[in-house]
Design a protein around this nucleic acid. Sequence first.
DNA 1: AGTTTTCAATCAAACGATTGATTACATAAC
DNA 2: GTTATGTAATCAATCGTTTGATTGAAAACT
Lengths: 223, 223
Amino acid sequence: MAAPVRQASEKTRRAIVEAGLRGFGSKGYAATSTREIAALAETNVASIAYHFGGKEGLRTACAEHVVATLGAVLAADAPEEEATDPALARARLTGLAERMVHFLLLRPEAHAIAGFMIREMAQPSPALDAIYDGLIARLHPRLCRLWAAATGREAESAGVKLAVFGMIGQIVYFHLGRPVVTRRMGWSGIAAPEARAIAAMIAATLRARLDADRGDADRGDPA
Amino acid sequence: MAAPVRQASEKTRRAIVEAGLRGFGSKGYAATSTREIAALAETNVASIAYHFGGKEGLRTACAEHVVATLGAVLAADAPEEEATDPALARARLTGLAERMVHFLLLRPEAHAIAGFMIREMAQPSPALDAIYDGLIARLHPRLCRLWAAATGREAESAGVKLAVFGMIGQIVYFHLGRPVVTRRMGWSGIAAPEARAIAAMIAATLRARLDADRGDADRGDPA
DNA sequence: AGTTTTCAATCAAACGATTGATTACATAAC
DNA sequence: GTTATGTAATCAATCGTTTGATTGAAAACT
């Protein structure tokens, strides 16, 4: 909580957080020992208790790190002004989706981040609050507003909110289900070409859904 | 492997598997102790080693149980003859999706099953092989054939396979992201009405996507 | 039929290993 | 010299597993 701005111990902090995130994200919280984290961070086990108060403190620190990192990634290409033109909103939405796919599937650091978030959702802890407040609570309404602008539906309606979750769910699944997807597709892994194919499929689904919503919005049949 | 057909120890086996599945599915493999499982199954810790060779053996036994249970659920409403009529295939597909949503979100035993599968994907183990071979390898191609019949595209094309995964991903996500979804939606949980809303949204997405695919299939633009 | 043997099944108890946390002490920075 | 930071050693607790004893019922034997 209290940031030790004093010294260059920041390097150790970062190393521990990154090591913890990598462990928690790939193997899970319980399955990752503090000694393993310390070894990966090239420091002593006691440093974890010193810097974060304990393993649980490191967990929330990792959550904050995830929020900061992912927030920066998503804010980088976020023009402050909201898109009101349907075509523009639609382009923004598809672009954001595509960017999320590529980040989630190609960036090496994304594996730990996504794994961490997924595991936090599966077994909620105080760390999930930080992720929700710092990330979901900001990103999801923004996507809903874009969806609304692209279709004419109301941004905070249940249908739009669920549709946005559905879009996110598709993206997340291709990270989560990677071993299953690659096996079924006959891929040896997910590199740039595979990520492009997945992004194209998600974009196509998104376009189809937006088109359908635009038609339904007039007839008052928002599913 | 060798089934002890002799005695009524089958009851103990089942109790241990169900207890293990519940623990592994909700808290994760590493976070669930053998003592905890034994207590939940109302038996002794040694029974786990006796019946399954160890904790890891119980893991694969749980995977086999998941395959058997889920296989039965999905096979129950699977008319052997494949649907060739587009409208019928479409109805089958949406019906299957709806059934999956309701099973995953409402059935109490589904929580452990889904949690187990998700965690296995996140950290593949030999248990994942059993799940893939016994479940995915059967279900996914069937969905692809339905998709193909509904749209005119080729069942084993990359686009169709990915689209089916996308549909599954949406469904799975609403189970996985339950704490996040409920919070954002202002729900206190996911009961029948909420599951219906989610199922409606997924059905709408599916319909929109199938429509778009049917149009694209002629023009040879399968994304 | 009565007796003995065999064996799957379960149990309490204990094993060594590992866990997260804590301590006491050394080192570096200011 | 005071504080901040890092380390080695150690703590109690818990982990998965193993052990030896016990049970009850089927199998084998007389």
